[in-house]
């Protein structure tokens, strides 16, 4: 089996790092030539990593729902507007009086793609399909689709949404599953 995108990425970065370290040892400077143009490049001697802490405090019932295998949305008690992703304020009514409602998890696929070239933080996954499904309630949901061959998918096909555990991270999320 060929190397994963993650392995290739890490190998390339490691090679660059080792190259810079050897140059630095002899010249005292982290300056290396660009492989293609030969232009002098300073190899950053500082590094930051971002891992954010994002508030989900007010939409906690959505996550409680996932724990029960349910997909929850909010509904404005005043105007009846359904919100997914759930939001706790209705900007139309300027009210924050919401009820939590369970979504049917049934609908149809309205579009999809297969991600072949992945972002760095998704490079450890094999190719995955992302789709948008329209649920019976009339709201749309973006999620992975449990089918990686696009030829087996069709716009308009019946789908359902299932709560699943995402591995290898091991956290609950939801997935679109073809139901035909």
């Amino acid at each position: 089996m060929s190397k994963s995108q993650k392995e290739m990425m890490e190998e390339a970065l490691k090679q660059l790092h080792m190259f810079v370290e050897s140059i630095k040892k002899s010249t005292g400077l982290p300056i290396v030539p660009d492989q293609k143009s030969g232009a002098a490049l300073w190899y950053d001697q500082r590094q930051i990593t971002n891992k954010y802490l994002i508030s989900v405090d007010r939409i906690r019932p959505f996550y409680d729902g996932l724990m029960d295998g349910k997909l929850m949305a909010t509904k404005c008690k005043h105007c009846g507007q359904l919100y997914f992703p759930p939001q706790v304020d209705c900007p139309k009514c300027r009210k924050s009086d919401m009820e939590w409602v369970e979504l049917s998890r049934e609908g149809e696929l309205i579009t999809f793609t297969v991600i072949n070239i992945k972002p760095a933080s998704f490079a450890h996954y094999p190719d995955y399909t992302v789709g948008i499904a329209r649920l019976k309630e009339g709201i749309n949901i973006t999620a992975w689709v449990r089918e990686t061959d696009p030829k087996k998918l069709r716009i308009g096909m019946k789908v359902r949404v299932e709560v699943v555990k995402r591995e290898p991270e091991g956290y609950l999320t939801y997935e679109i599953v073809p139901a035909e």
Partner: peptide
């Protein structure tokens, strides 16, 4: 849309292309 589903920029436009 990114955190869980790793969409890429080509991916977003691919959703339009498919449709």
């Amino acid at each position: 849309e990114f955190q869980n589903f790793g969409l890429t920029f080509p991916g977003y436009y691919a959703l339009y292309a498919t449709a």
